[in-house]
């Protein structure tokens, strides 16, 4: 049970990262391969402030949110000057620069990293794994709710308009530049928030844990599940996040399976598992359509029945 809960916390941390990454990659259509770096920024600030300045876990959450958000803002500003593939590689480069900062700046503990991060406590009780899962799920629910809310606002619609056609969006009055920057900031801030949970959950942060590979995994999860959809983001994190544990019985082939499953999915189902236009979604749509038509037919066939 405890083991499943720990796997659950890992999956939930990944899900927060994928749902937040979806805001910038799914809605705005901007490539971002630096979500792992933003997780790292949040985790590092949370770690430094909880170990060195004895800040409470609950205060490190907004701190991690804000610091990663500022980093996202900077990337957002940079993104305005670069078109698609140039931006993609710049975000890849950001991972290396951030890891170098963690390694070389003494504030972040240097190459040794930061360890002995205390367990958070609530009402005088130290966190159990259940508490980590609870807080993680609440964070995830919050990020999902914000994402969903965005989908229904003028702001969210504008982001998608930017994705579909930037020039057209700006011609109908969407402030493209500032909206892009806001989306980058928000996406990074949520990832930083996940970092505030990551740091005490792992009890230690080391520079190399937040490299390029972590960012690739997060983006792969999002695309695997279905880019542009919240359900896809969550499902991708759940499936690929649990995969290393699910495939323990073939330990030696786990990473091979990860790569193979990823490329097979992208080859045969580039929409992702439950993205718009994927086979699964089409089938469910068709099935629900069918159900509704039948029910509708049933009511029209016997109008006088019942009451």
């Amino acid at each position: 049970m405890s083991y499943m809960i720990v796997v659950g916390v890992t999956v939930v941390i990944y899900a927060i990262l994928t749902v937040s990454l979806n805001i910038i990659v799914g809605y705005v259509g901007q490539p971002n391969l630096a979500q792992g770096a933003f997780l790292g920024i949040g985790a590092y600030f949370a770690a430094v402030f909880s170990t060195r300045y004895h800040m409470s876990f609950w205060l490190t959450i907004p701190l991690a949110f804000a610091t990663a958000g500022v980093a996202g803002l900077v990337l957002g500003a940079i993104s305005l000057r670069l078109r698609e593939d140039f931006l993609a590689i710049t975000t890849i480069g950001l991972n290396f620069v951030i890891v170098a900062v963690f390694q070389y700046v003494p504030f972040f503990g240097g190459a040794v990293g930061i360890y002995a991060i205390p367990l958070p406590s609530i009402a005088g009780h130290q966190f159990s794994n259940n508490a980590f899962l609870t807080v993680g799920l609440l964070m995830l629910a919050f990020v999902m709710a914000v994402s969903k809310y965005l989908e229904h606002t003028w702001f969210g619609a504008s982001l998608m308009a930017i994705r579909d056609d930037e020039t057209a969006a700006s011609s109908v009055g969407v402030p493209v530049a500032s909206y892009k920057v806001i989306a980058f900031t928000l996406s990074a801030a949520f990832a930083g928030m996940a970092g505030s949970l990551y740091a005490p959950f792992l009890s230690a942060v080391t520079p190399t844990s937040f490299g390029f590979i972590e960012s690739v995994i997060v983006l792969a999860m999002l695309i695997f599940g279905g880019l542009g959809t919240i359900r896809g983001a969550v499902l991708g994190a759940v499936i690929l996040g649990a995969l290393p544990e699910a495939f323990r019985f073939i330990s030696n082939y786990r990473l091979l399976m990860f790569g193979a499953i990823l490329l097979l999915m992208l080859r045969f189902q580039p929409e992702g598992l439950v993205g718009e236009g994927s086979v699964l979604v089409k089938l469910t749509r068709r099935a629900t359509e069918e159900l509704r038509r039948r029910r509708h037919k049933g009511t029209t066939d016997s109008p006088a029945a019942g009451v």
């Binding site: 259940n130 609870t134 799920l137 609440l138 629910a141």
Partner: peptide, 18 residues
């Protein structure tokens, strides 16, 4: 769905630490 995630959170909390 969001309610479900939140509910999961509560269940996890309620389970308490064994």
């Amino acid at each position: 769905a969001i309610a479900l995630v939140a509910a999961l959170a509560l269940v996890a909390a309620a389970c308490g630490s064994s």
